[in-house]
Design a protein around this nucleic acid. Structure first.
Lengths: 245, 245
DNA sequence: CGAGGTCTTGAAGACGATCAACAAACGTGG
DNA sequence: CCACGTTTGTTGATCGTCTTCAAGACCTCG
């Protein structure tokens, strides 16, 4: 059943981790998505202030939501991996308060807002799962607020690594404790509200503590339990539990 | 029409700022809310990890979502004012990843989750507006990430003051540039990821610049335009525009 | 009037930023 | 396959914002 779903394959897999999906719902979801396009590294998938008539589903590649300050500083507010909608909230918000950039070459599927609205009318349960999906985004925002606001840089970095690993695991994109991490230290810095220099030194500390290995676009967690403890990482906020929603 | 709505009065007013509400929808909303209870200052409205069968609507008073770290540090991830659902997301998330505390004496109305589910089944448009409401929460989270991650303390504080003023204005709880601000500097510090000492000094700077007056639980903005410029405050992220959703 | 919370102030120190330079890795074209 | 330029990662030195600790002033409410 997980074959041949095309662009929605990983999304379906992720949603099935939240609640059971009926066959009709899977079909409805697959029908919601139209064409697929590609976006190159560092290109905007959606620009800030834009009003796209569709939401973008990340099929392949990594992306980030970001906001710019007047002095050019950038804050990344979310990191997205395959199976994530990068702007499902655009369906109801209409005008986006942030941009979305491709962190590496991406394949994007488009879900027209009128069809999403159709789901809320004809498939209330599936509609609730999409709503749920945006609630997990918000939950991740809150966790990042804690990391950025109250944790030391090293611990926040460890936390981010735990989170990404856990999210990739849910869609089958990990190789045990190892996973592709195709983004730069500058981008991590913009996500954690730090300077690139300090991210570099923090990552060195994690390596010196033998918690991770991080080379050429790939991270390996050497001691999962210790890293989680160091980061005070509790995966509850990712809500990867199957319950009737 | 805005009289006699009881506990949902301010919520209805806020939602009407997002989109038109039909009479039937207002009635459905009013019927969703059952009893009202009171919660005293510093008491938990919802405890972290709880699974309440209802969502809490703040009728009167201020509240905050927060998370605690092991060393006792607290990060406030959202500040709520009357008319806000403090945990509408609990409807679908079930277990809360954070606590909610009353910042002053509060009156809380309860919306059972089964009735909220009924709204998504029988009133899809109203359901979308509730979804929308949680999307604005998430948008505020993102803006806070920017403030905490990339702005200097003084500017972040100014930004928070602009936000609260704008949100209170939408529900008619401002007196021109003045509004009740019934929370302590410690609580502001926990929201901005700062120490209370630094919040104190930052607030002094805002006062020295003649941007605000802040005395005995009340703030007055002395120069709205200058304060907004200083905070780089753009209210778009609050989505106070009426559009078909 | 007293007590506890809140605000304010000062001094010292830490964490992270900034600036600048260099090394390593990568991709591209010759 | 190598040469080259560009991006990314790394290091050192200095600086600044914010934290911590501690004490005192203020204020509010019983």
């Amino acid at each position: 059943m997980s074959h041949d779903l095309g662009p929605v394959r990983l999304l379906v897999r992720k949603l099935q981790g939240y609640d059971e999906l009926s066959r009709a719902e899977v079909v409805a979801l697959a029908r919601t998505v139209s064409s697929v396009r590609t976006v190159g590294t560092d290109q905007d998938i959606v620009a800030q202030g834009e009003r796209p008539g569709y939401s973008s589903l990340l099929v392949e590649g990594w992306a980030a939501r970001y906001k710019l300050l007047k002095d050019g500083a950038r804050q990344i507010t979310a990191i997205h991996v395959p199976g994530d909608f990068v702007d499902l909230h655009g369906f109801l918000l209409h005008e986006l308060d942030h941009g979305v950039v491709a962190l590496c070459d991406c394949r994007i599927a488009m879900a027209p807002h009128e069809r999403l609205r159709g789901i809320t009318e004809q498939h209330p349960h599936l509609g609730r799962l999409l709503w749920f999906n945006t609630l997990v985004d918000a939950s991740i925002h809150r966790e990042w607020l804690v990391a950025i606001g109250r944790m030391a840089a090293v611990n926040a970095l460890a936390h981010l690594i735990c989170e990404i690993h856990t999210r990739l695991e849910a869609i089958g994109l990990t190789d045990g404790p190892r996973f592709d991490f195709p983004i730069t230290q500058v981008e991590v810095a913009d996500a954690l509200g730090l300077s690139n220099v300090h991210v570099n030194r923090s990552s060195q500390e994690l390596r010196a503590r033998n918690l991770i290995r991080w080379t050429s676009g790939m991270i390996e967690i050497l001691d999962v339990d210790q890293l989680k403890a160091f980061a005070q990482f509790d995966p509850l906020y990712l809500y990867q539990t199957r319950e009737p929603r």
